[in-house]
Amino acid sequence: MNITTSEVYERGTSLWQDAWIRLRKNKMAVAGGITLIVITLLCVLVPFLSPYDYEQQDLLLGASAPSTQHWLGTDVFGRDLLTRILFGGRISLLVGVIATSVALIIGVTWGAIAGYAGGRVDAFMMRFVDIVYALPFMIFVVLLMVIFGRNLFLLFLVIGAVEWLTMARIVRSQVQSLKQLEFIEAAISLGLSSWTIIRRHLIPNAIGPVIVYTTLTIPSVMLLEAFISFLGLGIQPPQSSWGSLIADGVETMEEFPWLLIFPGLALSVTLFALNFLGDGLRDALDVRGAKD
């Protein structure tokens, strides 16, 4: 009897190792992960790596094609494109991470409370999610940015507020099924408060789908930010993100196509990597229905 329990226990702890082994076998996911690490490092370290400043203009040079001096060429003000892309990447990645965290916090809390409380509270909270889900969000995002100015903090908040709904649904269904299990019953009979049970026992056990969905939320958040910045409502000059660099590139794409192609490549490759990593994680953690 003792042996079987310890065996079960051992299998339980090796869940993450299993997932890690499965993830490592998935070449696309590994490539995605490595690409992401490299891009993030480059963006973080760019002030030390690049000989150019991101606002440093060279009006005599103007827009120049890729060369040994400027690997990806320069924009119409003679600013080094590679440096600008990497600095823009800081903003794009930051928006992705912070807005996703906002969505994560709201969604996990909301879903865990709804799932744990059950009954009327649950019905009310999830009905609310259903209604908000049906709102035309893109329109509200555009409206909010127009009305309250183009402020970076608001951008995080708005995007986070859009993306938490699916997270809430996923966590709720996880918590609902976990709630039936004996260890929660044990925790209740030990007299733990509901909040402690949610925080210590329910959320950690629902973490798999949350991780997967988080990796898949980051690209959609980055896409949203790029979309808003492309419309000219997000990041304002002299700051730039990949979205606003693409918007600038479109204006001059006939004469200087590299100004469109390279920022676009940076955005696409990052989104690509994130999606592959997310898909790989979903398979590795064996999470169903996190996205489709």
């Binding site: 492309f230 590139g249 479109v250 794409m253 676009g264 955005l267 696409s268 999606n275 592959f276």
Partner: peptide, 21 residues
């Protein structure tokens, strides 16, 4: 996968660049 990762505002200009210009 490329279609999903490539945003509309990038695909549109690229198509214009290639097929239009």
């Amino acid at each position: 996968m490329i279609g999903i990762c490539m945003p509309t505002f990038l695909l549109g200009p690229l198509l214009v660049l290639i097929f239009g210009l």
